Simulated scan of single mutants.
Amino acid sequence: MCDVLGAKTALKRIVLHLARSKEYPEGSSRHGYDLVAPLDAAGRLDAQAWRDARARCRVRRFWDGEPTETGHLVHRPGGKGGANWAFDYDPARSADDEAGYRFGDHSFNPGDYVSIRDEDGALHTFKVATVTDA
């Protein structure tokens, strides 16, 4: 994948597992997300690199007992800092989008925690399980 100047845009495959919660005291590797996204040197989502490789920035939601969903990682206007990150499963509808909670402020290094608001509005915390080259 190349940006408009022909330089390589490095993408990472990031796997998130549901963190410990009341319902899952040990967390759950059967509930989570597998995404491809550009990260900067600190492990944060890189908005400029995303612009250069947005078609390759994908997400797969896996949730035990539910069908797997696939979509795109999107960076859109609004939210803190003037933009926010979300998972878009159907570009024709916004009701199915899931928003990352302050994704622009958090790092995605193994062991880090991030939160995602699902399409029903519930906020879930996830632990970064792995980060590898995509």
Rank of each mutant, 00 (worst) to 15 (best):
E98S: 07
Y33N: 04
D3S: 09
Y89I: 05
N109M: 10
K12F: 11
L123M: 15
W85L: 08
D133K: 11
V131R: 08
R56M: 11
G81F: 00
R60W: 02
A47Q: 09
Q48F: 13
T68L: 09
L11G: 07
P77R: 14
G100W: 07
H72Q: 14
D40L: 00
D96P: 01
R102I: 00
S28Q: 04
Q48M: 11
D34F: 06
A7Q: 15
R44Q: 14
A95S: 15
R20A: 10
V36A: 02
R51G: 08
G43T: 05
R56G: 09
K22T: 14
K22C: 14
A41D: 08
R117G: 12
A86D: 03
P91H: 03
K127Q: 13
D64K: 10
L35F: 08
D118F: 03
A49P: 11
M1A: 15
A10Q: 12
D3E: 09
D112G: 02
I116T: 03
V4F: 10
A129M: 12
E69V: 10
T130N: 09
F126M: 01
R117S: 15
S115M: 08
A37G: 09
K8T: 10
V128C: 07
D96Y: 05
S28I: 07
D97H: 05
R56A: 15
H75D: 06
T70F: 06
H17F: 07
G71P: 05
G78V: 06
A55K: 12
A7R: 15
G121R: 05
H31M: 13
T70D: 07
V131H: 07
R30F: 11
V59N: 00
F103I: 02
Q48P: 12
L11R: 07
Y24M: 06
T130I: 04
A99D: 13
R30L: 11
V74H: 04
P110T: 11
A53P: 04
E23D: 14
H124C: 11
D88Q: 12
Y24K: 10
A86I: 00
A134E: 13
L39P: 06
V59L: 07
S28V: 06
D88L: 03
A83E: 14
R61C: 02
F87D: 00
E26V: 07
H72I: 07
Y24V: 05
A95H: 10
D112Y: 01
F108I: 03
L45S: 11
R20N: 09
N84H: 13
A86H: 02
R76P: 04
C57N: 11
P91S: 05
R44I: 06
R13A: 10
Y89E: 01
A92Q: 13
D120T: 12
G27K: 04
R56V: 04
C57P: 09
L18S: 08
L5E: 14
D3N: 15
D133R: 10
A42G: 10
D52W: 05
